[in-house]
Amino acid sequence: MARTGAGDEAVRAAVQRHALAHPVWGHRKVCALVRHDGIAVSEASVLRIMHELGLCCRPDQKERRQLTTKGR
């Protein structure tokens, strides 16, 4: 069920503004900035909006270092 309303549009605009200004920041930091702007929003809502707008950055997919079986 999609939410509509003026409040949701204000949240969406704030999330988009902060996410585009800082493209490598995740949803938690964007959520903190939106809250700092005075808009009450949950992290889950920010994550959902970022996914819908295609603004989620992929986490680093670094390979884990394999320990040798011989030891050091």
Score class of each variant (00 low, 15 high):
M1N: 13
M1T: 10
M1I: 06
M1R: 15
A2C: 09
A2S: 15
A2T: 07
A2E: 11
G5E: 13
G5C: 11
G5M: 15
G5I: 12
A6D: 08
G7D: 14
G7N: 11
G7L: 02
D8G: 11
D8I: 13
E9A: 05
E9L: 02
E9N: 15
V11M: 04
R12A: 04
R12S: 05
R12W: 01
R12M: 12
R12F: 03
R12P: 01
A13K: 15
A13M: 10
A14M: 01
A14C: 02
V15I: 13
Q16N: 10
Q16M: 14
R17F: 12
H18W: 04
H18P: 06
H18C: 04
L20W: 04
L20V: 14
A21N: 05
A21W: 05
A21P: 00
H22Y: 13
H22L: 05
H22M: 08
P23L: 09
P23A: 10
P23F: 05
P23G: 00
V24N: 11
V24A: 13
W25E: 09
W25D: 03
H27W: 09
H27I: 01
R28E: 15
R28H: 10
R28F: 08
R28G: 01
K29L: 05
V30Q: 01
C31N: 12
A32V: 00
A32K: 13
L33T: 10
L33C: 09
V34S: 04
V34L: 07
H36M: 06
H36C: 07
D37C: 02
D37H: 05
D37Y: 02
G38A: 07
G38Q: 13
I39N: 00
I39F: 02
A40Q: 01
A40E: 08
A40N: 10
V41D: 03
V41M: 02
S42G: 15
S42Q: 13
S42R: 14
E43A: 11
S45C: 11
V46T: 12
V46C: 10
V46N: 05
L47P: 00
R48M: 15
I49P: 00
I49W: 04
I49Q: 07
M50A: 09
M50C: 04
E52G: 03
E52N: 10
L53V: 02
L53K: 06
G54I: 08
G54E: 06
G54D: 04
L55C: 09
L55P: 03
R58I: 13
R58A: 14
R58S: 15
P59G: 11
P59N: 14
D60F: 03
Q61W: 08
Q61R: 05
Q61P: 03
Q61S: 11
Q61L: 00
K62F: 09
K62G: 06
E63L: 09
E63H: 15
E63Y: 08
R64P: 01
R64C: 00
R64W: 03
R65Y: 13
R65Q: 10
R65D: 13
Q66F: 10
Q66H: 11
Q66A: 12
T68C: 03
T68V: 03
K70S: 15
K70C: 12
K70F: 06
G71R: 12
G71N: 12
G71Y: 08
R72I: 14
R72T: 07
R72D: 14
